[in-house]
Simulated assay, not measured.
Amino acid sequence: MSLPSPTELEAAAAIVYGAMPPTPQFSWPLLNEALGTEAWIKHENHTPTGAFKVRGGLVYLHALSRREPQVRGVIAATRGNHGQSLAFAARRHGLGAHIVVPHGNSVEKNAAMRALGAQLIEYGDDFQAAREHAQMLARRDGLHMVPSWHPDLVAGVATGYLELFHAQPDLDTLFVPIGQGSGICAALAARQALGLKTRVIGVVSEHALAYQLSFHARRPMEAPVGTELADGLACRMADASSLPPIIELADDIVAVSDEQVARAMRLYYRCTHNLSEGAGAAALAAALLLKNDPRVKGRKLGLPLTGANVDAPLLQRVLDEQPFRSVP
């Protein structure tokens, strides 16, 4: 499946900016000092839902309302930010939103989805189980199943990367966290649309390696999920739709541990006084891990802070520097 064209990205931007302004990108001196090079942070924690995915939900439901005007309700599986995105957009279109989350999901993300009007359903022990249950409910109840990856979602998310690239067109390396693939595909679409040479490197949790394994095997792979901290990266099975453009266009995929993510979250707080959830800090964690790598050392970096939706008790553990012992 091809990535959205420049024309499609322009149309997506018009939809997104009808609901929210562009988010800022800043270069923070203390972070630059920690990295030993110049980095630009794309603050997607400043969207109406505190995460980048709201852009994709806005574009997807705008297109759906015109493509299938008879639809009265949508359903999706999520660990939180995808669900908030759809609930936010569904309310703008007068649609019901049914969101399936695994048991033990973020308490505060669940509360945010309910506050946006979503009907929350808890099922299964991980995202994959929640997604399969959502698919069953969609068939049973006649709801539109919103996938985790779709060109409309990618087009919406790409508007944020276009903002970053327009502001800083000479970025050498961009790190992008990978959950189900819409974020990195959006970055690749934006780079392609502008004809840039920026290196795009995906970031996964070393406790959820499905996308890294799939990237190297060049086919969808499954891997156990054991991350305690980066729930937005807790993918057990790579999405077959998002994988082809990642395999073809991404420059590499690296893995970071929960401890490395925790360090990056602390740095964001101490250096910028911005909160980050685990997945939101993964790009910074990867840059710190590769600090002496030629793709980072002396390079101009792009680092999306993709979300700030972290539960208070978990954030307290991070700030207190308590250890994270992820499940193998």
Rank of each mutant, 00 (worst) to 15 (best):
R92T: 05
R92C: 05
H93T: 01
H98T: 06
I99V: 07
P102G: 09
G104L: 07
S106Y: 12
K109H: 08
K109I: 11
N110M: 08
A111E: 11
A112M: 07
M113S: 00
L116E: 03
L116P: 01
I121W: 10
D126E: 09
Q128D: 15
Q128H: 06
A130G: 06
A130M: 05
E132Q: 06
A134H: 10
Q135H: 01
M136F: 02
A138Y: 01
R139S: 01
D141F: 03
G142W: 02
H144W: 12
W149R: 07
W149H: 13
G156V: 14
Y161I: 09
E163Q: 09
H166L: 13
A167Q: 15
Q168D: 01
D170K: 06
D170R: 13
D170A: 10
T173V: 12
L174Y: 04
F175V: 06
P177D: 15
I178L: 09
I178S: 11
Q180V: 15
G181Q: 13
S182M: 04
G183S: 15
A186Y: 04
A186H: 00
A186N: 10
L188C: 00
A189T: 00
A189S: 02
R191W: 11
A193Q: 10
L196P: 01
T198S: 11
R199I: 12
V200F: 15
G202T: 11
S205H: 15
E206C: 12
E206R: 15
A208S: 15
Q212R: 14
S214H: 05
